[in-house]
Simulated scan of single mutants.
Amino acid sequence: MADDPLLARARHAWLGMAGVAMAFPADGGVDVTASARSLLCPPGWVGIVALGDAAIVTVPTGSRAGILRKRLRGLPVEVLTDADQLRAVLPFTEALGPATLAYLDECDLQPAELDTVDAIPRGHADLATLLASVPMHDADECGLAAITSDAFVVRHGNHVVAAAGYQRWSKEVAHLCVLTEPSQRGRGLARAAASAAVADAVTNHLLPQWRARPEPSRRVAQALGFRQLGAQLSIRIEV
């Protein structure tokens, strides 16, 4: 897996967001480093990103880095992003995730067969209307309010019922954001909108990234050709 070009691109992107020099260990395992500028997690939290057989962990202070190195040494990589198993060795008060991390190589894209997808500016009123029509948790979770690309939308009559776009992370990643109106789910609309967003990201030479927690979202990613390479977890620690 170490020679997998897609894995290498994904790791390079996350290392660029760590805010400090570190590496995914070549022989597996975990690298723990203090970084006050880490984008792997909210400020003051511990950020854990596992990709393939290795992981990187950023902590807010150097003193905590030493503690975590001792606690995490020798743990299987998959345990690092499993909140229930991790809590047994590292007490924490809050967690964000875990979320799976999937990536797509341009040659693996499986485009949707639906051609009724329109592109609208990210600040368009129709996108705002869709976000306002769903539960607040769904609107926050999908991330569409913060996209930097156009929004790619599917309409039912005059109403947008599904949308996708991406946030550009650093200089190389297109972080996908997708939302379907609850009453319209299960009809392939998320895949149609996301297919257009992914194609736009590839055209702009970006690495499409799909971060997901719900299983339906993972299935959409898989149908488009994404490969799950790892997971991410952010925690607020007590030690």
Rank of each mutant, 00 (worst) to 15 (best):
D4R: 01
A8M: 12
W14C: 07
L15T: 02
M17R: 10
A26E: 12
A26T: 09
V30G: 00
D31K: 12
T33C: 04
T33A: 11
P43D: 04
G47R: 02
V49H: 01
A55N: 09
P60V: 05
A65M: 11
K70S: 13
R71W: 11
V77Y: 10
V77I: 09
V79W: 13
D82F: 10
D82H: 10
Q85T: 09
Q85H: 13
R87T: 09
V89Q: 06
E94Y: 13
E94P: 12
A95K: 15
G97I: 07
L104V: 05
D105W: 10
D108R: 14
D115E: 12
T116K: 14
D118H: 10
P121W: 06
H124P: 03
L127A: 01
L130Q: 10
L130E: 08
L131W: 00
P135T: 00
M136N: 13
M136V: 14
A139G: 07
A145S: 11
A151S: 04
V153W: 04
V154Y: 09
Y166A: 01
Q167G: 13
W169Y: 05
S170C: 12
A174Y: 00
H175E: 15
V178S: 00
A193M: 02
A194T: 12
A194S: 10
S195E: 02
S195V: 00
A196V: 09
A197M: 01
D200C: 02
Q209I: 07
A212R: 00
E215I: 13
E215L: 13
R219F: 01
R219V: 09
Q222P: 08
L224V: 04
L224E: 00
F226L: 04
S234A: 15
